[in-house]
Every structure is written in C-alpha cells, then in structure tokens.
Amino acid sequence: MRVIEIEGGAGPAEALKLAERPDPVAGPGQIRVRIRAAGVNRPDLLQRNGGYPPPPDASDIMGLEISGEVDQVGEGVSRWSVGDRVCALLGGGGYAEYAVVDARHALPIPDGLDFFQAAALPETVFTVFANVFEAGGLKSGETLLIHGATSGIGVTAIQMAKAAGTRVIATSRGAAKAEAARALGADVSLDATTGDLAEAIQAAGGADVILDMVGAAYADLNQQALKPGGRWVVIATLTGPLAQVDLLKLMMKQATLTGSTLRRRPADEKARLAAAIEATVWPWVASGAVRPPVEATFPLAETKLAHLRLEAGEHVGKIVLTV
C-alpha cells in the first residue's frame, strides 16, 4: 500500500515522502479499512517535527482519523461486515491506503455524509466530547468560550455546543474568521486582533467552560473570563505551555483547571467514548446540526501541501487528505 513517511524521522513538510509498505492484516478484535479520506490535525504536525511520538502499540504513520469501507474483519468482530462505511479514531496510521482499527473505535457514517466529511469527524468529535462535555461538564443553558474557534476543533465545538443547547462565545484572529464563527452558530464572535479581548469577553457575560487551545498567552484572560464554578479545559498550548496562574483567584471562583490528550488513552477508554459519542453526538451529526466544514482537500501524494496549509493558520474548518 502507499503511505506517507517522514524522511529522516522528523522535519519540515518537505521531509514528507510517498512510500510503500505491506498491507496490514486485521487481527482479533480489529477491522481493516480501505481508506478513502483522512483528517489532517495539528498533532500530525507535532509528530512530523519529532514532538509527538505515537504510543508504543500504534503505527508510526501519521493520521489519527479516517473514513472508508471495511474490507477485512478480524476474529471476534460481530458488528462490522465487509463493505460497511465507517469512520474511525486511530492512534496512528491514517496517511495510507489501508489501516487496521480496533473495531470498537469505528462508527458508522451517517446517511448524507461523504467520505471527506466523515473523515473530519472522529478526532475532533472525540476531543470535544471528552474535554468539553465530560471533563468540562458543559450543560444546557451554560456558556462555552472557545479560543481558536475556526480551527477543526473549534468549528466542531461550536456546532456541538449549540446542538446541546448552550451559548457560545468564540474568539479567532481576523474579521473574516470572526464572521465565519458567527455563521457557524457562535452567539458572540470576537476578533482577537482588535480591542481589549478580556474586556469584550467580560461584557459578553464570561464563561462557564473555556476550551483553550492557545495556552500561555491567554492564561490571565481565561482566569478573568471564568464565572464562579467555571471550568478551564486546556487541550493545546500553541503559545507555550508555561503560564502564570493565580491560584487564589481560582480558589475564590471555585474554578477547575484541567487538561488532557486523547491519543494515549487506553483502548478501553476510547471504546467507552465511542459508545457515548454514538449515543449522544451521532444523532446531531445525522440531523445535520453537527457538520464541520471541510476547508480543503489534498491527494495523499500532496500531503506536504496539506501540512503547509494547516501551518499557515488561514483555514476555517478541516483539512482532509483524499486516498
């Protein structure tokens, strides 16, 4: 099968190369998927640069989410059959023509979605559900503040939060992105490049839950933005991991600061998340309430261009490889 490898083990996008490897074989409890599309995410960039190695039991090939058809079923798998259309969460291996998947980590592609849209779902939906709804405890009637609201995670978070009956404050860089976040459903959409962002968030009423992908630069702002009993959830640190936190302020607000990664969670935990997402989020996807936009698609052989597009930071929504 064709795959994308990182020449030299790490490096800039120019180090990505098309290569061939043996087709994988589905083992017990696994399915093999003929990949039609694969999502491109920031963890892929980190892995390419040597900063996010795969777990010991995962493929060293990049790619954390895919869509396609089941073409091989391993021993002990009863839910899936050859030909089923699925999307799936991976620990790695998505930048290829085939991938083996823990059968419990696959979800059916709802009617009306093509492979490109379906490939844009698993990594982002799992991340938002685990962090915003489980760790953050977001409930109907509360307010979610999303930084980086036009990223792949951000657009998914906007739609899932609105589907759950919550209010959304979105921040993004530039007037065009702010308008895009508003069009996706954000109740308040702020351009982070103009005016006093902290003051604007306070004027909008503050947040019960903050989904933070920015990190250090927004630490003080987030502490101000939290309502009493608020939950600040960190899932990325694009401006650095070292932040100054006023513990007394968090104590006085009875606030919670938490964070997590998804890739290294145990297989059983990912299976639990998949079942919860299918029960809670998949009806929103089927109804069209959650349908993250695909900003651009690139053939597998042009993965370098997809990485450059993601690194430029001008996209709104997801970037997807076609296989």
Rank of each mutant, 00 (worst) to 15 (best):
G112Y: 12
Y98I: 02
H105G: 00
G92P: 06
W80K: 04
L107E: 01
R79A: 07
S78G: 15
G112I: 08
P108R: 04
A103I: 14
A103L: 14
G94W: 01
A120E: 08
L89M: 15
Q72I: 11
R85S: 15
A118G: 04
V82I: 15
S78L: 09
D84E: 09
V100R: 08
V100G: 04
A88E: 02
A88P: 00
A119L: 06
V86W: 09
A120G: 15
R79V: 05
Y95R: 04
G93W: 10
R79Q: 13
G76Y: 09
E75P: 02
G74F: 08
L107N: 00
V77I: 13
G76A: 07
R79K: 14
G83L: 11
V101I: 08
G112H: 12
A99F: 08
A96L: 07
P108H: 05
W80T: 02
L113A: 10
Y95K: 02
C87K: 00
G112L: 04
D84K: 09
A118D: 08
F116G: 02
G74A: 01
R104L: 10
V73P: 14
E69S: 09
C87R: 01
A88K: 02
D84Q: 05
V73D: 13
E69M: 07
V77P: 14
E69A: 10
G74C: 11
A119Y: 08
L89H: 02
P108I: 03
G83W: 07
Y98T: 03
H105E: 05
E97D: 15
V73T: 13
V86H: 04
A118W: 05
G92K: 07
A96G: 03
V70A: 08
F115D: 14
G76H: 04
A119P: 13
A106F: 11
E75D: 15
A99M: 10
A106K: 06
R85N: 12
R104Q: 11
C87Q: 06
A120Q: 10
L107K: 00
V73A: 12
H105Y: 00
E75F: 13
W80A: 04
L113E: 09
E75Y: 13
G112Q: 12
R85A: 15
F116S: 11
